[in-house]
């Protein structure tokens, strides 16, 4: 795993030469199990994500979208092909908040800062700043179990940002939340993405969520996962998930997604 973490907290890193992608996935294959009997999960995935781009990976279950995210995060190695993240180890958010219950909200963020090499005197202030960013100023001393589901995901977001990476990977982070909270968090991630000029790769099986958030939606086929189709979403941000534009595109993409799923019913 790369330990090249020279990212400093306060000054944003200069982007790599213009045109270079923030995430480059070239001809990635992934299969689990022993060679020979292994079932392919990802088959020849090639995908570039530009710096500052918001990409949603969309697919039914079995499309390997979470596997792909793990590969980008460096938690696993591709069987073949290459993945490059020039800016260093990306931040990753899970469906479960994955906050450590033995630490307060603020200390969770400080741990991420510490592991990222931020000096002790700066940690507290930076953690407070990140909590302000997710509008949880004043929750520094709160224990994880004292926070609501939406608040936990916002702390998790702040902790992910504390890693100082410009690339944020999100694995269905809002799937377990109620619709009202999810809607609000869509607004939040859109705002923070724009404010911090992040590169986001967001995995979801929710078509509307993908269209609500992304600049580009990538549809993956299932078993094995391949890039089936891509859509550029040109609707202006901030969008509303119930708006007509989002709905129209969602209908189109859902049709395509269902087509992909239907193929698995016919042998």
């Amino acid at each position: 795993m790369s330990t090249a973490l020279t990212t400093s907290k306060n000054a944003p890193v200069d982007e790599s030469p213009t045109g270079a992608p923030a995430v480059r996935i070239s001809h990635v294959h992934k299969s689990f199990g022993r060679p020979g009997t292994a079932t392919p999960v990802l088959d020849d995935i090639t995908l570039d994500v530009a710096p500052g781009e918001f990409v949603c990976l969309l697919g039914a279950s079995g499309c390997g979208k979470s596997t792909l995210l793990n590969l980008i995060a460096g938690l696993d190695k591709p069987t073949a092909g290459e993945i490059e993240v020039p800016s260093g180890r990306p931040a990753l958010m899970f469906q479960e908040h994955a906050l450590f219950p033995w630490l307060t909200a603020g200390k969770n963020i400080e741990l991420a800062l510490r592991l990222n090499g931020v000096a002790r005197p700066e940690r507290r202030a930076e953690a407070e700043r990140l909590l302000e960013l997710v509008r949880l100023g004043g929750s520094y001393g709160k224990r994880v179990h004292e926070l609501s589901g939406g608040m936990r995901q916002r702390v998790a977001m702040a902790r992910a940002l504390a890693q100082g990476s410009r690339v944020l990977l999100m694995d269905e982070p809002f799937a377990a939340l109620d619709a009202i909270t999810r809607d609000v968090l869509h607004d939040e991630i859109t705002r923070i993405w724009a404010e911090r000029q992040l590169t986001v790769v967001f995995v979801t099986h929710n078509v509307r969520e993908a269209v609500r958030l992304a600049q580009r939606v990538v549809l993956l086929s299932s078993r094995p996962g391949r890039v089936a189709r891509e859509w550029q979403i040109d609707l202006p941000q901030p969008r509303r998930i119930e708006s007509a534009g989002v709905a129209d595109l969602s209908v189109e993409i859902t049709e395509e997604l269902r087509g992909e799923i239907r193929r698995h019913g016919q042998h």
Binding site: R135, L147, S148, M151, T181, V184, D187
Partner: peptide, 15 residues
Amino acid sequence: DLSGVEAGLDALDSV
């Protein structure tokens, strides 16, 4: 407006 909604949700959901 969003922060207001959020503050409301936080208050309603807090344990």
